[in-house]
């Protein structure tokens, strides 16, 4: 299975306005089946060479021919241009590159679900709702927004009847979190996605619930480089002649493995010495705690599970 880093070339095959979002259908350029995903997953969209943004998949997991995302417009200067670009420039036929789905918000098994959405957060919850409904589980949704006309995916959700309640704040219809959350219900999980302010209120109100029952995802912008020092660089493999790029969020070892180069590794944290590799050219950025100071200074070997590169390129004896 290819890793999440694989870039997929897609083309916009449909676009429609829905509330304050643009619902976009993407289809692979080569029309090959798309990789599988589970409710709660999102993709990285490479909007421009400088701007990568995350969007939850909001269509049906069973559909391996197309993916759907809903992008809310956050005009500059508040937004930094990602969603603005999508709204201004994406037409049917526009080519778009994305990464494979990642899921930090999977649905756990339960008897009963309470979903709470704030605004565009509905995108992450919609496939979950479809799947628990299909599994015959008990569920309900409270969907809050500024006004009915801004709330995306409203028509599809209305089909679920009174299990879905809409709370548009301009109509003085405010969700009563106390009613929803004051009394914990055994076997029920709470799934939340929405703005920070509402998240805080939900967290506060659900303090009495057993740990782990409240599950949520934030849509706040994310740079993806949790380790700010990390940058990408090239590695060249002397034996095979392969030339590979190591992106900031991956290790040399992971990139080797993804390209079919297997190397024995154990701790993968820079302490055991199993993955020691000979360096032929370039200067490693040693981050292990195995090598002695002299060994480091000689730059003859490195631990490819954690160490990186000072400069742009390393040549390794593998």
């Amino acid at each position: 299975m290819p890793a999440d880093d694989t870039i997929l070339s897609m083309v916009v095959s449909g676009r429609r306005r829905d509330g304050d979002a643009l619902v976009v259908t993407l289809r692979p350029v080569d029309d090959r089946p798309l990789p599988p995903w589970e409710p709660g997953a999102h993709i990285d969209v490479l909007i421009t060479p400088e701007i990568t943004r995350q969007y939850s998949l909001c269509g049906h997991p069973a559909d391996s021919a197309t993916w759907q995302i809903a992008v809310k417009h956050q005009p500059p200067p508040r937004g930094r241009g990602g969603s603005d670009h999508v709204h201004a420039n994406w037409e049917v036929g526009t080519r778009v590159e994305v990464r494979e789905p990642r899921n930090n918000f999977p649905v756990r098994d339960a008897d009963d679900y309470l979903f709470i959405a704030g605004g565009i957060g509905i995108t992450a919850l919609k496939p979950m709702i479809d799947s628990v409904e299909a599994a015959g589980k008990k569920w309900s949704l409270a969907y809050c927004g500024r006004s009915l006309s801004t709330m995306a995916l409203r028509d599809e959700l209305a089909e679920y009847g009174d299990r879905v309640r809409f709370f548009p704040s301009d109509e003085q219809s405010r969700v009563d979190l106390g009613e929803l959350l004051d009394t914990p219900v055994e076997g029920r999980l709470v799934y939340f996605c929405g703005p920070e302010s509402l998240l805080e209120a939900v967290q506060e109100r659900s303090a009495a619930w057993p740990p782990g029952t409240l599950q949520f995802e934030r849509f706040t912008p994310q740079t993806h480089t949790l380790d700010e020092d990390a940058v990408s660089f090239e590695i060249e493999l002397a034996e095979s002649g392969l030339s590979l790029t190591v992106p900031p969020h991956k290790t040399i070892l992971e990139v080797l493995e993804e390209n079919g180069v297997t190397l024995l590794s154990s701790c993968r944290a820079g302490v055991c010495g199993t993955c020691e590799t000979t360096v032929l050219e370039g200067i490693p950025d040693h981050r292990d705690s195995v090598l002695t100071d002299e060994e480091r200074a000689s730059n003859e070997t490195m631990m490819v599970c954690v160490s990186r590169c000072i400069g742009r390129r390393l040549v390794l004896d593998i």
């Binding site: 890793a3 701790c267 944290a269 055991c272 599970c305």
Partner: peptide
Amino acid sequence: DRYAHPHLAFGDGRHSC
């Protein structure tokens, strides 16, 4: 599929596992 960052399950330094 988590983004890489070394763990401390084996500790670190002269007393690492």
